[in-house]
Design a protein around this nucleic acid. Structure first.
Lengths: 342, 342
DNA sequence: TTGTACGCGTTATCAG
DNA sequence: CTGATAACGCGTACAA
């Protein structure tokens, strides 16, 4: 038999019907464990491999995936929405639909209720971007129990090893920022300001930890100052940054750890004046991209929104089909962007 | 009609048969231009979009693609082969086959003959990695004329705008290396050694140009030394590097522009001794990865082999199906790798 | 130059 | 618990 064996060949070889083969392949109930074994052994023997193309066509409907994003209107979320739309259009011809759902504002309970209301009819899988809390974690698990595939997206539900995750390792991202910052400043001496939106979230915490770790290990001659929160009104933030810059004439670097870098970078440019300060921020948005081009930031540490979205979709789909993904393709890279590799 | 229109709907709406619709969709001959117009207008009107899944299944056979790689046994080519194998296995379930073909050694004419011998029966498309020459360019064009899709891969046939290309912009890659080198060295003064395998190839030339451009524009206080060729025997290379290091005590950076960085980096570590020299090389291989971890190189400028391979396959497939690709997904990124974002 | 009919390999449905 | 059979939407040979 020169051609690849089909389900028909498999059924014949295993001495069962097509329907039974299908049940085994898709892990459905209603087959004697003995029969399951026989089929699985035959799969090995004849080297059967599923034809995903045929399987997708035979479902008679497209996969329906949704991305649950926080309401906040920052540029990073904006980019993400854009990419989801773009990727959805491109994937339409492959029988995959994707859309954005906005999470309710009222904290983890609101989100949990929102997730509980999602209909199995409406979605085959959802990617959820939400801060880690026990409520959210449980809500995600309950979604899965109802037969909807669910993954955590960008923001990891770290304590839940069983919930798949698509996104970067924020500790490594912070470490990368630290390594670059140290190399840019060295061999000079000096101190480094760290600006974050709020240090409540685990993601921010991990970046900060990674940053500090590398600065301590590789660049002990540099001083990392206590984090400043940019959450809150602009006036206050401006005062705080001014104070630090006045008090520490040795400031040699500013690390904007938050995903939204607009306000911090703007203030840094305004208040830093003519001083020789190295600036690193996260995420590529219209604002940070322009800042990089115009020399208002030296480097960006980013994750590619398009890749994130496609990876989430591929991961959800693979789970729907009881398949594994190609690990090397799904590892989201921590990218370093300079002016010339934008 | 709530469902997406099918070819059947399209045929009915346009007042033609399924076969005619198929001919128009796939750009085949044998349809009056008037009819083509009608069908295309109807496609717009009813918002028809092809179902790629069904189309692939209906072909009754997998796509067969080949990567033509140079024989040379460097680590970068090795990585590429590995990835092609990996991706081929993953794509098998999507009715796509891919394999590696090794180009003959005897220069452009040999390659041209090799390409001429490829059978239409054997391949639907090929990705060719070969230095730019008029012979190769023409050979690629002739392959296309025989109905096999062809793209240039990693090494661009730059003078041929009509031949699609999957790979990075080497000028930008060199510029990125230059920007990083300048920032790592500054505010110190000094000179920079540039090491290349041979500066015959257009790719090397472009990297060198990009590097020089940025160094001149952004870091005029640094001196870029004339390129050294690492092609040839190790003894000679060793002598040349030694001479430069002796003659210029101000050497502050070494840029290894070649894809194979093993010898240059090894010699740099050996001869550079205790001097404070910033080192940048290209491509991620087992060797460069270890060098980065162990501090024998500060940064790598890379292109992801897995992404390159997948992008080439998607591009070839899209061309087979008379489709366009999602541009944002197919732009190969110039990545900057530090120790912590490996 | 155009149309018809069959088949691709799987899933879903319904009957046993 | 298992089996038979009709789809899914398109490509392709062949007929007209």
């Amino acid at each position: 038999m020169p051609d690849r064996p089909t389900t028909r060949d498999l059924a014949k070889a295993a001495g069962v019907s097509l329907a039974t083969v299908d049940r085994v392949l898709n892990g459905r109930a209603g087959v004697r464990s003995k029969t399951v074994e026989v089929v699985n052994k035959t799969i090995q023997e004849i080297g059967f491999q599923r034809n995903v193309v045929a399987a997708t066509l035979a479902r008679r409907r497209a996969y329906r995936f949704a991305f649950v994003l926080p309401l906040q209107s920052g540029e990073f979320i904006g980019q993400l929405s854009l990419r989801i739309g773009e990727v959805a259009r491109a994937f339409a011809s492959e029988m995959i639909e994707a859309e954005v759902l906005t999470a309710p504002e009222d904290g983890p309970h609101g989100l949990a209720r929102f997730l509980a209301d999602l209909s199995v009819q409406a979605y085959d899988g959802i990617a959820i971007m939400a801060p880690e809390t026990p409520h959210v974690r449980d809500a995600i698990r309950r979604v899965e129990e109802r037969g909807i595939q669910a993954i955590s997206f960008i923001s990891r539900q770290a304590a839940a090893e069983d919930i798949p995750f698509v996104g970067i390792d924020n500790h490594a991202a912070g470490a990368t920022a630290g390594e670059l910052m140290g190399r840019l400043i060295s061999p000079r001496q000096g101190s480094v300001i760290v600006l974050g939106e709020s240090f409540q979230s685990r993601d921010s915490l991990e970046r900060r930890l990674g940053f500090d770790r590398v600065m301590g290990d590789m660049f002990p001659h540099l001083t990392v100052l206590p984090s400043l929160e940019t959450h809150g009104d602009e006036g206050r933030v401006r005062r705080v940054i001014s104070q630090v810059l006045d008090a520490r004439p040795d400031v040699a670097g500013i690390y904007v750890l938050a995903s939204e870098a607009r306000l911090p970078l703007t203030l840094a440019a305004e208040l830093g004046g003519g001083r020789d300060i190295q600036r690193i921020a996260h995420e590529r948005t219209p604002f940070t991209e322009a800042a990089l081009r115009e020399g208002r930031v030296e480097a960006l540490i980013t994750q590619d929104p398009g890749h994130l979205v496609r990876s989430a979709i591929r991961t959800l789909r693979a789970r729907c089909e009881n398949r594994t993904t190609l690990a090397s393709q799904e590892r989201i890279r921590i990218e370093v962007l300079l002016k010339h590799n934008l």
